[in-house]
Design a protein around this nucleic acid. Structure first.
Lengths: 350, 350
DNA sequence: GGCGTGGATGTTTGCGTTCACAATTTCGCC
DNA sequence: GGCGAAATTGTGAACGCAAACATCCACGCC
């Protein structure tokens, strides 16, 4: 606990009451919008509040009522586009519902001690509910630290956690991306997956496999990247040497950017030689060279849904394991084209 | 105020005390690490806490002590790379100092009502101090809403606000970028500035002008973009038609990306025909096509400094208007080259 | 042996708010 | 004109904790 100097307290309710010539309870009623307060009293009280610069003490309020309207968000990697958009979206949705947000930034969910401290903090602060941005398995552990009675919603969590959850349907996203490449005429589609621990990576991979299967295509070996352009570049350098590889579905837009760079260095043109689809639709994706065909995730919608689920639980008091799925959308741009030599009958060439 | 159902309270201090056979005050002493508690008592109390799953109520604690260790962060545009990195950095620094963070997300500082509400909230919650990510003039208004006695630190604020402030030295950043282009042999440097209200835009512009002045170069007309690739693209389409324009300093990396795209579409090669320097060094900047020369901002350092200034004020109780400046670093990559037709007699090609 | 010292613990009070209840006033209506 | 209901206001208690003060005890020293 940091040692802080003696506090300096401002005016309190009874100060306002004295000034307005009423009881402290009347002030409370005015503040809380109770019905049975006469108009004249109300104006007197409001005037006194303004004159004194009074602001009510929320701690006292929470203590007295036992409920708060703060919700906690536990997130990691908030510098990444996905998580930060999510937090932003939840924040905006919360503001609309007159809730405020305490964001706990975990530096890697595996840091057990850190996530424990953050959850403890949030609970002790009397958070009315918690949202876990939980895109990796390790988040479950942090989530389980929450005492019963505090409603939880996960974002990008797993169904088997038995917890209210909202996710972008990344499986469908993978499906969409892969189908799009197959429909352009490619015999099969290669996949550069995101980090294995992330649920999103796995779901996109499954979507990819499903699309290949339904088209009767053979799944080529899968490369594994991080979320960064740097790791995409590494994978891209390998893929660029494989003549068969004419269509790639990348884990996200930044990975796709890395791949584009690697392809360019090897003299393989996009989309003439290699077609590419990303994921996320970061704002600048359309300005890559060439503009990246990708799958958009509607983060704002995810934020709204997450808040809705949380408010439902708050209202009913039931910890329903209800779920919501947000559908991704394919955004066609310029990185997908038919293969240079349609593989119809001709066989591969070196 | 959202109507929430009846609370459900957990065990309190006296429950723990009863179980451990001591007084509630002893429990408090154990919790706060007071010196004069015997080892046996301490273990008994800790055991009781564990058995009951007790967690102390922070609201009550704040109410009793009058101090909290929550600090508020007021930020807008947290989906942008800069602000989100900043919040992330402050969050990590705060965790280290055992402070927690309440982040209020303002949707555009001009939304007066919203920022007022957020500041009110933060103050009422008893925030020990506030950090304003205040890159635009309008933030001053929000900042002035804070009652005296609550320490404030601004990030990217203005010196004339008479408030503790930490900024990246964007003036020097602009200087560095422009000098780098001039040293490559360009006669002058064009500038695509960021949005006018942002202090960073203005400081970078001034750095640009200063570098031109010191080299005796004439400042060409300045283009104005947003922070997005889309707006950079718009400006780029204009600049691409100006044969004289061989060197550009862009407001940030995404704007630079848009410019690169526009140049490519007009058949102007980078860096052979046009040299380009960005700002920020977003993680993927090195993978643009070609890798973007840019100026890196050390956001993590900014976060640490901001927290340091805040803790100083908290400790001394003085609202010192101390400031910290974080130096940016030029990251040379592949978008800068000598002009095709060197303007000086000496010319060098690789 | 009396007294001081300081460690270990208990008791009381108050932080600023809301809630349950009581008290007062107002008003309608027969 | 009086009675009851509703509107309006006030009073006393919590809420869970930490700070201040009080208490008890063991020990050492002249």
């Amino acid at each position: 606990m940091t040692a802080l100097p003696p506090p300096q307290r401002g005016p309190v309710m009874s100060d306002v009451a004295a000034r307005a010539g009423v009881s402290h309870q009347t002030v409370s009623r005015v503040l809380n919008g109770h019905p049975h307060v006469s108009a004249t009293t109300r104006t007197r009280v409001l005037a006194a509040i303004a004159e004194l610069g009074y602001r009510r003490n929320l701690s006292a309020r929470v203590l007295a009522t036992g409920r708060s309207n703060v919700i906690g968000v536990v997130a990691q990697n908030t510098a990444l586009y996905g998580p930060s958009s999510m937090v932003q979206a939840i924040g905006e949705a919360a503001l609309g519902a007159d809730l405020s947000l305490t964001v706990g930034h975990v530096a890697g969910y595996d840091a057990t001690a850190a996530s424990r401290r953050i959850v403890e903090r949030l609970v002790q602060q009397g958070a009315a509910g918690l949202v876990f941005i939980a895109p990796v398995d390790a988040a479950e552990e942090a989530m389980r630290l929450v005492p019963g009675g505090v409603p939880i919603v996960t974002v990008d969590g797993l169904p088997e956690w038995q917890c209210a959850n909202v996710s972008v349907d990344q499986y469908t996203g993978g499906l969409l991306a892969t189908r799009h490449l197959l429909e352009a005429g490619h015999r099969t589609v290669w996949h550069v997956a995101g980090p294995e621990p992330w649920h999103g990576s796995r779901a996109r991979e499954e979507g990819w496999r499903a699309a290949l299967a339904e088209a009767g295509a053979v799944a080529p070996p899968m490369a594994r990247a991080g979320w960064s352009a740097a790791s995409g570049y590494q994978c891209g350098r390998m893929l660029a040497r494989i003549p068969d590889c004419t269509a790639i579905f990348a884990a996200n837009d930044h990975v796709a950017l890395g791949i584009m760079r690697a392809m360019a260095e090897q003299g393989r043109r996009i989309p003439e030689d290699v077609s590419l689809v990303g994921f996320d639709d970061v704002p600048e994706a359309g300005y890559f060279h060439p503009g990246l065909t990708t799958v958009r995730q509607e983060f704002a919608e995810v934020g709204r849904q997450a808040l809705r689920l949380l408010l439902d639980q708050l209202a009913t008091g039931v910890n329903a394991a209800e779920s919501a799925l947000v559908e991704p959308v394919l955004i066609p741009r310029a990185t997908v084209a038919p293969p240079a030599r349609p593989v119809a009958d001709k066989e591969k060439h070196e």
